[in-house]
Amino acid sequence: MLSPRDAASLIPGCTAQTLRRWAHAGKVPAAVLPNGRLLFRRRDVEALLEPQVMGPEGSEVSGSSVGSSGVVPGQGALL
């Protein structure tokens, strides 16, 4: 289990306060201690780093949609 500061250090450009906001908004799972402090699982934080691809009808599809070459479909259109 990671403190908000330790968890935020795994995400480039993220702060502990941002992670707390995401946890309170339900965007990332967190354990709430009796004193109100938050703790994050490493795997939940690392899951935020995986690319999310939007599938048909706006549903999120996990990083498994990334092709075998490691390229996200449609990625070249932005270059």
Rank of each mutant, 00 (worst) to 15 (best):
L33D: 09
R43D: 12
R20P: 00
W22C: 00
W22M: 01
T15C: 06
R21T: 00
S62Y: 00
R20F: 02
G70M: 09
P4Q: 05
P12Y: 02
V72H: 09
T15Q: 06
A23H: 06
I11M: 05
D6M: 07
L78Y: 14
G13A: 09
A7R: 03
E46M: 15
S68D: 13
D6K: 11
A31S: 12
L10A: 06
P34N: 08
G63V: 11
E60P: 15
D6C: 07
R43A: 11
S3W: 05
G63H: 14
K27Q: 01
L48A: 01
T15L: 05
V28S: 01
E60I: 14
P29G: 05
S65V: 06
A47V: 06
E46L: 13
A30E: 00
L49Y: 13
G55M: 02
G58Y: 09
L79A: 15
G13Y: 12
D6H: 11
R21N: 01
A8N: 02
V45K: 03
V66L: 03
G70V: 11
S62P: 07
F40I: 03
N35W: 12
S64T: 09
D6A: 12
P73Y: 04
V72G: 03
A7K: 02
V28G: 02
S9I: 05
V71Y: 15
L2V: 11
A25W: 06
H24M: 08
L33K: 14
V45N: 03
E60R: 13
L19R: 02
L48H: 04
P4F: 06
G74L: 05
W22R: 00
F40E: 01
T18Y: 07
G67K: 11
R5I: 14
G55P: 01
Q52C: 07
A23N: 04
L79P: 08
C14H: 12
E60N: 13
A7Y: 04
S9H: 12
P29S: 08
V53I: 15
T18M: 07
V66R: 06
V61Y: 01
Q52S: 10
T18Q: 07
L49T: 12
E46Y: 13
V71E: 08
R43Y: 13
V32D: 01
R42E: 04
G26V: 03
S65R: 08
V61I: 14
G74I: 07
F40K: 00
P12G: 03
E46G: 12
R20Q: 07
A30H: 02
S64G: 09
A7Q: 02
V71C: 10
P56H: 10
G58V: 06
G36Q: 07
G76W: 13
